[in-house]
Write a protein that binds this DNA or RNA. Sequence first.
DNA 1: ATTCATGCAAAATCTTTGCACTGAT
DNA 2: ATCAGTGCAAAGATTTTGCATGAAT
Lengths: 144, 144
Amino acid sequence: MEQRIERIKKQLHSQSYKLTPQREATVRVLLENEDDHLSAEDVYMLVKEKYPEIGLATVYRTLELLTELKIVDKINFGDGVSRYDLRQEGANHFHHHLVCIECGAVDEIQEDLLDDVEKIVETRWKFKIKDHRLTFHGICHRCQ
Amino acid sequence: MEQRIERIKKQLHSQSYKLTPQREATVRVLLENEDDHLSAEDVYMLVKEKYPEIGLATVYRTLELLTELKIVDKINFGDGVSRYDLRQEGANHFHHHLVCIECGAVDEIQEDLLDDVEKIVETRWKFKIKDHRLTFHGICHRCQ
DNA sequence: ATTCATGCAAAATCTTTGCACTGAT
DNA sequence: ATCAGTGCAAAGATTTTGCATGAAT
């Protein structure tokens, strides 16, 4: 945890951004809830517990910054809100998601199942892939 | 074109919805711009050209209805708006997208490249897949 | 001093809703 | 007469922006 914070701090510094207390509090919330897919409002509420003075706009600005630096990925599952998901350290691809249409749970697939597909897309469509988003909607194992 | 309208009309009737002039105008705009990925506002503006009295709310309600009936798919590429994409007739899967981060173009892949991946997900994660969303972000062949 | 970041409130966007009205059965 | 569908305006929800203030170098 502390080490990941430290590395994120360095990553910010290397682009001449600071890890302010507000930003650190936000990153900690993301780390502590790595399995969830928090909206900006969710993050805001959780940060407030430990840092009540923080403003919602700061959370938005921090999440935007972290997205730019590819520390988090912004994703939208089709309800009206953007959600923010910490990238696995060292991962060069964004993981996949399983969204249950029964219970709403969102599970993650960390393995990259798209290697073969991406090769096909790159050669057949002459498209240089930089990132991907893969989400399955269906019934999770718990709901079956 | 007329035949597709006719089939959509039947599909609506089978669920006791009507193909009102407003709905037909909206569907026609979607058919005429099948290659684009129009937002509700885009659709509204285009429908207005031929049917100036239409209201934005009606367009939203129509798009919602068409989404429910799986005539169109609602998708979000990460800019703030939902976009609406006609499903290929008879297609039981949603096609894939290539979003160019240079020029913003969105190309479509109609082939289903996910068959193998879906088999793996269904068995390994015990997840019953009903739908999917696959989008690649990168550089399109025109921008390279 | 300067610069970057923050908090608050206001504004901007996108989407949904309430309601009176219309049009078809 | 009923009832689904419509248009308009208002409300709701999410996100962004302007600006004065504050913290750090």
